[in-house]
Design a protein around this nucleic acid. Structure first.
Length: 419
RNA sequence: GGGUAGGUGCCGGAGUGGUCAAUCGGACAAGACUGUAAAUCUUGCGCCUUCGGGCUACGGGGGUUCGAAUCCCUCCCUACCCA
């Protein structure tokens, strides 16, 4: 087996690591979860040449969490990495402050250095869930962007025209709607483009919303006498509510979500997204995905296929055991309506509570007003009995189970007063 | 620099002296139905409350008034037109 693969590939040598130039691998790299490649012919030739390419991806730390939508280009990086190419991960500590508006319908607020620094903390840890970070070059773009002076920026700004910028769809739209567009937003593509120059990228990957910025990288490189990078765009994925996944919508599945939570989030996705998620956010084989597709078409319950998807995704970030546990837990709690196996305890300090105080103080609801709404909406159960009277006084018992809605549980612990 | 129109809740967007915690839509939450899917229906969606109410809120500050999101002054911000 190994040999057929090896023989089917021509190994080029460039540096120490062999570069896999197998036609099938390259084909998959260029097609799976790929929206567009520019210049495809050029990139294909480069991949076949056996030369070790430098593949760039920039991530701006605009939120403390990387969501699964961002994993799509990360997976693409991994594909490149598996062929032996050099990944250059750029952490946009500089661009993060300025803020890219590519995926925005409105102006993105500038972040403070502190916010960015904070968000940055766990970025690498998150990224390494998908790519082999030890083999990556990781850089921070403040290193070079912070050094540019007005003179240089002026030259760069002269490469592009405002006309190009405002003909972008989202910018056009904002313009038509009479919304504000700041000059700094115009500068963003320059910065991202210059990143490509700084790291001498051969290829840059990014979401379709990045198309303009990626192309800017090509122009910028030409300006600095480099060969323009090829660019590869990935589709943007829909989030929990069916809209585009975005931190500001709050509809994300985050790489660091707890296994049970992550599993649940995947299960709440719309059925139509199942196959798309398989392709974009996992690396199970194309043939397996094909089978799932057939299963769905032949009328299998989408829920079961989705359960496999959830398993795959949780496995990617938390390992196989955690994924299996999350799956069991899901079945128990949501299908069999059993209690979760791990209910957080809460130390009661009084013997009796008004039910609203109890819900609020234990953290089950964010306010008493909300607690009242939950009770009136018959969303509160204590030891399996629905409570409807918000004035009720609850006598505290050890191990009492309180449930609010479908997923919030708490177990009462009584302080042991015996001495 | 001049002019015009604006700034309302998570978002969009009504309201233009009392009946406004603020119509409506989206998002969100809960309930019913279910597969934590979709569709549909119902309810809720500032905080506190001794359930009578109270408090905070309509860009910021000040004022008029018994009473202001609504009127006046001032400051800040945005878009558009002119220069």
């Amino acid at each position: 087996m190994f040999f057929t693969v090896a023989l089917g590939s021509v190994f080029g040598y460039y540096g120490k690591m062999p570069i896999n130039t197998g036609a099938r691998k390259i084909e998959e790299l260029l097609s799976r979860g790929v929206e567009e490649v520019i210049d495809r012919g050029h990139l294909e030739a480069a991949l076949r040449s056996g030369k070790k390419l430098r593949i760039k991806l920039g991530i701006d730390p605009t939120s403390p969490n990387i969501h699964i939508g961002r994993s799509i280009p990360l997976f693409k990086l991994r594909d490149f990495q598996e062929l032996g190419h050099q990944i250059v991960l750029i952490i946009g500590d500089f661009t993060g402050i300025i803020g890219d508006t590519s995926d925005k319908e409105s102006e993105r607020p500038m972040l403070t250095e502190e916010t960015v620094k904070n968000n940055l903390k766990n970025y690498i840890k998150q990224a390494e869930k998908v790519v082999d970070i030890k083999k990556c070059e990781v850089c921070y773009n403040s290193k070079w962007l912070g050094k540019l002076d007005y003179h240089e920026i002026g030259r760069q700004a002269n490469i592009f025209s405002l006309n190009e910028f405002i003909s972008r769809e989202n910018i056009r739209k904002r313009l038509d709607e009479g919304k504000r567009i700041s000059l700094r937003e115009v500068l963003y593509p320059l910065m991202q483009g210059y990143d490509s120059v700084a790291v001498k990228a051969d290829v840059e990957v990014g979401g379709t919303d990045q198309r303009f910025n990626l192309l800017a990288g090509r122009e910028m490189q030409r300006h600095y006498g480099q060969e323009p990078q090829d660019i590869m765009t990935n589709p943007l994925i829909e989030g929990l509510d069916g809209r585009k996944m975005s931190s500001s919508w709050g509809n994300t599945i985050n790489l660091f979500d707890e296994p049970d939570d992550m599993f649940g989030k995947v299960m709440s996705l719309k059925d139509e997204l199942i196959i798309r998620y398989f392709i974009l956010t996992t690396r199970i084989s194309q043939s397996e995905i094909e089978e799932y597709k057939k299963a769905l078409e032949s009328g299998d319950n989408p829920r079961d296929v989705k359960m496999n998807l959830a398993f795959e995704i949780v496995k990617q970030y938390h390992g196989k055991e955690a994924a299996a546990r999350a799956k069991e837990e899901f079945k128990n709690v949501f299908q069999k309506k059993e209690l979760p196996s791990d209910i957080p305890g809460w130390q009661a300090s009084k013997g009796e509570y008004n039910i609203l105080d109890l819900l609020f103080e234990s953290g089950l609801t964010p306010s008493k007003a909300e607690a009242k709404r939950m009770v009136l909406g018959s969303a509160v159960e204590i030891n399996g009995h629905t409570k409807a009277d918000w004035q009720e006084t609850i006598k505290i018992e050890d191990n009492m189970i309180i449930q609010v809605g479908k997923r919030k549980f708490i177990k009462i612990l009584v302080k042991n007063h015996s001495q």
